[in-house]
Design a binder for these strands. Structure first.
Lengths: 143, 143
DNA sequence: TATATTCCTACCATTTCGGTATGGAGGTAG
DNA sequence: CTACCTCCATACCGAAATGGTAGGAATATA
């Protein structure tokens, strides 16, 4: 499995916020209820998005979270690369992985690099706004 | 990470066997030494390939393993789908996963299905024989 | 029969996954 | 100024997956 619940939930939060953009700051509690995710777990995921300035958090009464950019400005890839620490399909391609001593003779390395490219290009080709479109238009990003 | 060491090692074993096809049955010990993988761990991986009739195992003195088909008959995808129990990028697409109650309203499901398709098509487009070609030809499957 | 080699079943340490619990710190309305 | 509501930080925890290890039984050859 490439994408854990963390990444999937992060995406659902972002979509939820797009769908309630007009309401200003949305409290965590509301999102958690709508998305049926535990408040505390969701909190830890949202924290990552706030630190990366993908969301803006406002404390105090009437506070909550909202997007910092327009939905077309976020790619799915950029969101997932934040929450999943790596989207690399194999450990030898992960950032900070110690260079494999067999890399030079490795028959499979170029293939893994190709797979990595395919995955990232697919995910970067989809915008957050694409995921919120009415159902009928939901096929344009399924290759 | 999508592909664990199991899948990667399986692929390396298959490649090793292609490169020593002419020598008949190749003992586990030889493969393990060449590939620098523990004999016992490799054994558990090879077992999977034998059970699926991708390899033929012969016991006793002079025994070992060999391919059951020509290298062009194996796709990388077919090998990986055996050793990794699933190549699904998200858990909700795994075989035997309990159907998600939110599937109908899920904004991200079609995207995950698209990703799954992209991954499988890439891996099924590469043959075992492609991985054994001389180095200079190693770019034809990197998109 | 001695030896090489595959098969089969357990077991295990470490890490990751998917959370929960507790306690603040900081803003805002009244 | 205080009560309330929100974000922020840290610690902990059970279950499953990962990446192996160990011991021995079955089988074929010489």
């Amino acid at each position: 499995m490439l994408i854990s619940t963390k990444g999937r939930y992060a995406l659902r939060v972002m979509i939820d916020l797009v769908e309630h953009q007009s309401e200003g700051y949305i409290p965590l509690k509301e999102i958690a209820e709508r998305q049926e995710i535990s408040e505390k777990y969701l909190e830890s995921i949202i924290k990552i998005l706030v630190r990366a300035k993908m969301l803006d958090g406002l404390r105090g009464k009437g506070g909550g979270y909202k997007l910092t950019k327009a939905p077309e400005q976020y790619t799915v890839g950029s969101i997932l690369r934040l929450t999943e620490e790596s989207l690399a399909p194999v450990s030898c391609l992960e950032e900070g992985a110690l260079p494999c001593t067999r890399a030079a003779e490795c028959r499979t390395l170029p293939m893994w690099q190709g797979l990595d490219k395919v995955i990232n290009e697919y995910l970067d080709g989809i915008l957050l706004s694409d995921l919120v479109l009415p159902d009928s238009a939901g096929d344009n990003y399924v290759i």
